[in-house]
Design a protein around this nucleic acid. Sequence first.
DNA 1: ACAAAGATCCGT
DNA 2: CGGATCTTTGTA
Length: 172
Amino acid sequence: MHRLQRDFFTRDVLDVAPDLLGKYLVRKFDHGEVSKFKITEVEAYRGEEDLACHASKGRTKRTEIMYHEGGRIYVYLIYGMYWMLNFVTANENIPQAVLIRGIEGFAGPGKLTRHLQIDKSFYGKDLISNDSLWIEPNSDNSDLKIKTTPRIGIDYACEIYKNKRWRFVLDF
DNA sequence: ACAAAGATCCGT
DNA sequence: CGGATCTTTGTA
């Protein structure tokens, strides 16, 4: 099976996010074992104008990777304990990212990174070329039911962006 | 330098 | 509902 290529990620985050549902997140561990998990829940963070997006504070050391071309990995630590896994989308200088919130068997962004052993060392890696983490298509995802809701845990944002239904969940 | 907050999770 | 736990960021 071939992994998803650059053109999948260099689109608007609102197109990429729901399109990731049902596809496979593939992790090759250091000891050689390969595990594949169907993606079940994602959220879109869209540009400097989106007050829930880290890039709303502008270009910093942490948000720098979101300004790169789509397909890169954005990882950060939250509450001192949990690594959040994101994929950068769109073209250069358009800061967008998809937060991976759930995979088959592991609901919760902090739980899935713990199980997949993903940490700061993945920051900036390219999904198209690295040998530890990538996305593969699903030949049988023609009949997906997708539910949309507001995003989780962003009470600090203003009403306009708090209410955007930019969380996408596979509806079984 | 220092203080504050945070895209979460778990146990009570 | 509160505690864990530490990086990033803003302010001085």
